[in-house]
Amino acid sequence: MTDNDPASKPSMIRFEGVTKRFGDFTAIENLNLEIDQGEFFALLGPSGCGKTTIMRMLAGFETPSEGRILINGQDISNIPPHERPVNMMFQSYALFPHLTVEKNIAFGLKQEGLPQREIRERVDEMLALVQLERFAGRKPHQLSGGQKQRVALARSLAKRPQLLLLDEPLGALDKKLREKTQFELVNIQEKLNMTFLIVTHDQEEAMTVSSRIAVMNEGKIEQVGPPAEVYEYPLNRYVADFIGDVNMLEGKVSGYTEQGLVLQVSDSCPDIRIQTAQRPPLGSTGWISIRPEKVAISLDQTAEQGNAVQGEVFDIAYTGNISTYHVRLADGSMIKAQTANYRKRANHEITWESRVWLQWRETAGVFLAE
């Protein structure tokens, strides 16, 4: 087991039966969750799902209505925010406009009354960490959005908290800068071996930066796991639909195979086979979740794939590196297939209204009972 394996590290944060109510509204319901020392953990979900409430309870800005929150085994319910081993980086960055970069970073250290020499050393260390040494004397209005983000991060890290909370930290950045900064965050977190907890509604961001993701829905956690596990093996339709793009085929269990199930999707569609250890009752309803990149599209049927359906190309989304084909089947349902654009768009044989075959292996999908 490696040092980067979360299972090899002690739990740093524990939520034990935590519920948070605001009047008659329950924001968080019976939350039980462990976050390990040195993890980059993501709370992922839509607006209003409760992820920010969890972060605010950790920071000390909200108090649980029921249950306990422990950091390193200590119940922090009665510890004020400024005494917790936690710091928080806000989406707005909240930099002081009248202070230079280095004075912004030093602000919290001065409030703690650290010796001037130690403050200087820590500020220099943080400037080097976020690669802003050349900008130490500038004020926030003289910086780009990405540079402001790094100043805010340096200020949050300067006090050397055991836990850093990141509240939608990259939301104000443009796409390219956001992607670049995601990798910078990961590198910094790995260098410091510090526990980071990020709140985001952006599933790509969560999958890029985190070692584990908790997918949230209406105050509850639907699934926790490494990004690849949550993407490839969702536990239910909500997770499958929220993480990435997906095809969802509903059908009735019509039979069993040695390695899986047979589902009848519609009278005009061939039965679909899927490899799974599950054995739901015959006649029960289930769903097959299939990612578009696992669906092959072609003008002719091949014998290589386990499942094949025919339809007509209804729409094509060209995004440069990939093309997504929306194909309408005989029963009116739509399936998406994605292909990498190895050739220029003008050379593609498949176009609008083409009659095509969609094919995928029995191992490509996931059977979902709910």
Rank of each mutant, 00 (worst) to 15 (best):
Ser333Ala: 07
Arg160Asn: 08
Leu95Cys: 11
Arg120Glu: 14
Ile105Phe: 00
Ala158Ser: 11
Thr276Cys: 12
Thr285Glu: 05
Ser289Leu: 07
Leu263Asn: 06
Gly137Ser: 12
Phe242Thr: 11
Gly251Pro: 07
Glu304Ser: 13
Ile54Arg: 05
Ala317Lys: 10
Gly320Trp: 01
Met57Thr: 12
Asp331Glu: 09
Asn217Ser: 14
Arg21Phe: 12
Asn4Gly: 08
Ile13Gly: 08
Ile213Pro: 03
Gly283Glu: 05
Leu197Pro: 04
Thr195Pro: 06
Lys175Glu: 14
Lys191His: 10
Leu44His: 01
Ala128Pro: 03
Gly50Val: 12
Val253Lys: 10
Gln301Tyr: 00
Ile119Lys: 00
Phe61Tyr: 08
Pro64Ala: 11
Phe135Leu: 15
Met89Ile: 12
Ile54Phe: 02
Val199Trp: 02
Glu258Gly: 11
Val265Asp: 02
Val313Thr: 09
Gly73Gln: 09
Thr208Asp: 01
Asn347Ser: 15
Trp287Gln: 07
Phe61Ser: 11
Arg84Asn: 06
Glu258Leu: 12
Pro64Asn: 11
Lys344Leu: 10
Lys344Trp: 02
Met248Glu: 12
Ala128Val: 00
Pro140Phe: 03
Ser210Cys: 03
Pro169Arg: 11
Ile213Trp: 03
Lys159His: 07
Asn236Val: 07
Ser284Glu: 12
Thr319Cys: 06
Pro115Ala: 04
Leu132Val: 01
Ile272Thr: 13
Pro80Cys: 08
Gln305Asp: 08
Arg117Met: 00
Gln359Val: 03
Thr351Met: 10
Lys191Asn: 04
Asp124Thr: 00
Thr339Ile: 14
His82Cys: 11
Ile350His: 11
Leu163Ser: 04
Phe96Pro: 05
Leu70His: 14
Ser254Asn: 05
Leu99Trp: 03
Pro169Glu: 04
Ile54Thr: 11
Arg160Ala: 05
Met57Val: 12
Thr53Pro: 03
Phe90Ala: 13
Arg345Ser: 15
Phe25Gln: 15
Gln131Pro: 01
Gln359Cys: 09
Ala346Tyr: 10
Glu222Cys: 02
Thr302Cys: 06
Gln182Asp: 07
Gly306Ile: 08
Gln203Asn: 06
Met89Lys: 15
Glu190Phe: 03
Leu166Trp: 00
Asn72His: 12
Gln142Trp: 01
Val151Asp: 07
Gly137Trp: 09
Ser65Gly: 10
Arg237Phe: 01
Asp300Pro: 03
Leu114Met: 07
Asn87Gly: 03
Asp174Ser: 05
Arg279Glu: 02
Pro234Gly: 06
Glu232Met: 13
Trp357Met: 09
